[in-house]
Design a protein around this nucleic acid. Sequence first.
DNA 1: GCCAACGTTGGC
DNA 2: GCCAACGTTGGC
Length: 186
Amino acid sequence: MPKRYWLMKVEPESYSIDDFERDGQTCWEGVRNYQARNTLRDDVRPGDGVLFYQSNAAPAGVAGVAEVSKGGYPDHFSWDSKHDYFDPKSSPDNPTWYMVDIRFVERFPAVVSLAELKSAPGLEDMMVTKRGMRLSIQPVKPEEFAIVRKLGRAKTGPAEVAKRKPAVGKAKQRKPGAKKPARKRK
DNA sequence: GCCAACGTTGGC
DNA sequence: GCCAACGTTGGC
C-alpha cells in the first residue's frame, strides 16, 4: 500500500500544536462519526502523512505535519463511562469507534490559514476548502500535501524574527505520553 | 456569540 | 422510509 496523506482536525483549545510538539506523540481519538471511523479503521496506516489542522481557531488552518505511528485500533475511551466520549454502544468485544496514533514531525513558523488554502493554486479540490465540510479526517492528495507543506515552510514567524537562544545543557527529555483528547465536548 | 450546514434521532 | 426537530461543527 502506497503512503497516503490525511488532514486531521484538532481543536487547539483541547490540544494544540504546542501540546503536540511538546508531547512528540499523541493518540487522535474522540471521533464519533461513522465515515471518519471507517477511514481510521480501514485506511490509515503507519507512515502515512498528516496535516495537523486546527479548527475553531483564529485563524483556522494547518499548523504542522505529523506522521501516523499506529494505524486504527479500538478507541478504548468509548467504553470508559467516565470519559467525555463514552458511548454505551461500544465495548471491548465489539468496539464501535477507532483511533490512531500520530507522531510530531514539524511545525510551521505560522499557520497556513484556511483562506490561504482556499486561494492557493492546486488546492481547489481539497475537501477542507469546501463549505460545510465537517469530516474530521479527510484524504489529501500527495500533490496537495506537498503544496501545503511548501506554503507552511515558506512562512515566516516569530521564531524566525526573534533570535533563538542557544540551547544549553541537555535537551529536556519528555516521554511521549498518555493522552489528551484531540477534541473536547463542552 | 452568531448562524449556516451538517449528522443523528425518533415519531409516525 | 420520510422528515422535522434537535444537537454539533466550525468559520467568522
